[in-house]
């Protein structure tokens, strides 16, 4: 036997088959139903936004890493995922060059400037959407009707609720066929993806559970106080970006807490901020800002929520 070929290193000597790339791949797989729904409802417009957003991300990733003389990491799929996630939170009628610009922004100022994958503070896709929202407010709030793609006439269910007090039925929200961003159309497609991610253990249940739980609790209490002024919990849960936010954005590992308790706090914080903005804010939707704000708090949440030391009893009061 040739003992020179033997490898020596620190234990453990076996590794889980799941690596970072396979986790990214699973998230992309989980987005397939939502992508299909977006393409079905918004046809070529959706395709244009998806392709240009992804292209923006990949081009920026390649160019920046080449320029900085770093290893090209396009193969780790994180830029591709950011591109898809960004497209999911953009309106279908958005000019493709804006989507492309958003992709470039997400990777360059959302990720690479912090040192690349694993180092960013904010969710890159949401940061890029916040930038586009500030730069092109009209384009970012112009909605089209599903399938026919008629412009202008359609507002989102949240807009209808906020400004006109019209509640879209949960059934319509569940299957889609509503105005909104690409990924906001069909709740069922997002839920399917979420179940897949939970089963594959790519995401942890705590953040979505805390997020949705807080939203439900908040709207129940609000309904209790003023039943005609507030929408029911089911509406808040299914409308707008809540599901894509709770399942795909807030669970982004890099920008959410690592401790179990911290994930509860993070999710609850997102839920609370979302509902405050939806209820009292000038905007109909608050998911994006809630997650970005909680992203900023993640380091503090991590510090505050360290697990109790094993074997040390809780102090009796």
């Amino acid at each position: 036997m040739n003992t020179k070929k033997l490898t020596i290193n620190v234990s453990p000597h076996v590794l889980s088959p799941v690596d970072s790339r396979s986790m990214m791949k699973d998230v992309i797989k989980a987005l397939i139903p939502a992508l299909a729904a977006a393409l079905y409802f918004f046809r070529l417009a959706a395709l244009g936004v998806i392709v240009s957003s992804v292209a923006g991300c990949l081009v920026a990733e390649y160019a920046l890493q080449k320029w900085r003389g770093k290893k090209i990491r396009i193969n780790d799929l994180s830029a591709l995922l950011t591109g898809i996630l960004l497209a999911m939170v953009l309106p279908p009628a958005l000019p493709v060059w804006m989507a492309f610009l958003g992709g470039v922004f997400a990777i360059s100022l959302g990720k690479e400037i912090f040192g690349g994958v694993g180092h960013n503070i904010f969710n890159p896709a949401l940061l890029a959407r916040a930038f586009l929202m500030a730069a092109f407010p009209v384009a970012l709030t112009t909605w089209v009707k599903p399938i026919t793609l008629d412009a202008v006439t359609t507002a989102t269910p949240l807009g209808l609720e906020k400004f006109d007090h019209i509640i879209t039925s949960p059934v319509t929200l569940f299957f889609g066929k509503i105005g909104g961003s690409l990924g906001e159309t069909s709740a069922v497609a997002l839920i399917l993806g979420g179940i897949y991610l939970l089963l594959k253990k790519v995401i942890d249940y705590r953040i979505p559970a805390a997020y949705m739980g807080t939203v439900i609790l908040f709207s129940l209490i609000a309904r209790e106080i003023a039943p005609d002024k507030f929408a029911p919990p089911m509406f808040h849960l299914l409308a707008g970006g809540l599901l894509i936010g709770a399942i795909f954005m807030a669970t982004d590992p890099v920008t959410s807490p690592v401790t179990a308790k911290g994930r509860w706090i993070f999710g609850a914080g997102c839920g609370l901020i979302t509902m405050i903005i939806r209820t009292w804010g000038g905007l109909p939707e608050g998911v994006m800002y809630s997650i970005l704000l909680m992203n900023a708090l993640t380091p503090i949440v991590n510090k505050m929520s360290r697990p109790k030391r094993f074997g040390v009893r809780k102090r009796k009061k």
């Binding site: 590794l15 690596d19 994958v117 890099v254 807490p257 690592v258 179990a260 094993f310």
Partner: peptide, 27 residues
Amino acid sequence: ARIYEEDVCIKCAKCVDACPVDLTPTE
């Protein structure tokens, strides 16, 4: 006996959830 190169931490917290004595290995 799979041998891999070390990559960047993506803070997925799987190590935190797996630790049987409640440590935060990534940190």
